[in-house]
Design a binder for these strands. Sequence first.
DNA 1: TAATTTTGTCTCTTACAAGAGACGAGTGTA
DNA 2: TACACTCGTCTCTTGTAAGAGACAAAATTA
Lengths: 262, 262
Amino acid sequence: MQDGNASAVSAGEKISGSREKGLNRVLEILEFLHTTQRAIGIGDLAKGVNAPRSTTYTLVRSLVDAGLLEMESDGNRVYFGKKLYLYGMDYVRGNDLLRRGRQEVDNLSRETGETSELCMLQSGRYTIVHASPGTRPFRISSATGLQIPLPWTASGRLLLAGLEKAEIEDMVSDDDLVLPDGRKLRLDDFVADIAKARITGYCVTSGLVDAYTKCLAAPVFSAPGKVEATMCLVVPIDTSEERTGELIGLLRNRAAKLSTVA
Amino acid sequence: MQDGNASAVSAGEKISGSREKGLNRVLEILEFLHTTQRAIGIGDLAKGVNAPRSTTYTLVRSLVDAGLLEMESDGNRVYFGKKLYLYGMDYVRGNDLLRRGRQEVDNLSRETGETSELCMLQSGRYTIVHASPGTRPFRISSATGLQIPLPWTASGRLLLAGLEKAEIEDMVSDDDLVLPDGRKLRLDDFVADIAKARITGYCVTSGLVDAYTKCLAAPVFSAPGKVEATMCLVVPIDTSEERTGELIGLLRNRAAKLSTVA
DNA sequence: TAATTTTGTCTCTTACAAGAGACGAGTGTA
DNA sequence: TACACTCGTCTCTTGTAAGAGACAAAATTA
């Protein structure tokens, strides 16, 4: 498995020296733009992905010509282009689950007033695929496309249900087990959490990503036993036992509705 | 409207025989998937983009690993992947016009009951960026991402406003001037249409794409004189003079609202 | 004003990716 | 049973794209 942790932690920057395949450079460029979330000059881009300037210019030109990237009006900085949007819409069209899931998440956050999210695994990483903000005055951080270590989340515990311990170990780096507050999770505990979540059919985590929220999640199945996605609600940590229970019920209900009976 | 001409017309489309750069192959693959609009086997894909099988396997593996493509559960066919969706959402986030335009189009079709679209130029081609179907019993064909020759549309006449005749000539192939019913448009007439549309500030075409509809379009400006997009309504060709007038008024209004005053 | 950095383009070399083709393992069909 | 496919993987060769670096022009700085 050469691909392995490519994106993951180490991102060891395979000793810059060697000559890189153009396509890989392009993939890095796209990923880099995804993290910066805004247009960037070509020179900086070259630095950012640690690629030679001349190469970067060439590749960027190709991508701009193809419409995958667009040049800002200043004629220097670039960002994602319309074509990526169109391809993205194609993806949505071809993906019932995503389409219905987005809808359901929007409904859920409107009905409950809480922040709601649809989450999936994306090349072995936890990804917020769609988020709807809810009506609370303070912003609960969560944006579409955000990637977070699996062990930090309730959804992560559900998404890994059914995997062998070895597989789980492969997907979780040591750094991932260190929570934002510095505490270190034991892998065995995490594995146990996953097993438990699998049985109960939902998962709640409190104060993991930050100290003020808890996260309620329910699994969406694409086939019996296969968790394809999760829906989750992010609520204040002091939400009452009772309301939490209600929300979980609602959440499980909606998630079940999404699960294909195909 | 299969795209048929895609291969023939615009892009250079060199007789690919010789050795091709990997990135170009990838771009062709993406474009091919965009036209097929569904998952396809790797072997067929290789045929479709006219690339060697071994190369195609290699590239597809890279793309799947990167998440730009996803393998269907049958383990053979591939289609667009989550990452493209995420990048696409990034594009939307970074693009006020698109975000507001989508909203406005949805509003418009809900209010009028007619099919409404947001259109833009995409690497020199007319593209329906977002469409909302309207409530009429019969389906008016129009899907997000669809690409149509510029001269067939009302929007096309607005999008080219302000360009020199030579530039227009460059963007329009001979085939583009042949309407679906076989009639051939004269380039001069088309250029004249464009000039007229520019002055009147809207455009109506009747029975061009098909014999049963007419198309009303209004320009969205990103800067004085620079048409960045158009909004349009597709209505039955026998829509009364009066209602047509009302709709155009509404359309121009909304399009103006979209135009940035930045 | 000169000094410094950044930008976009070009040229040339060689490391290496694209491609041809062979192979064995499936899958159908006569 | 043969026959004719397609599928996924591998190996080897060679054409060529990635990259180093030089350059002028533009933009910053002092």
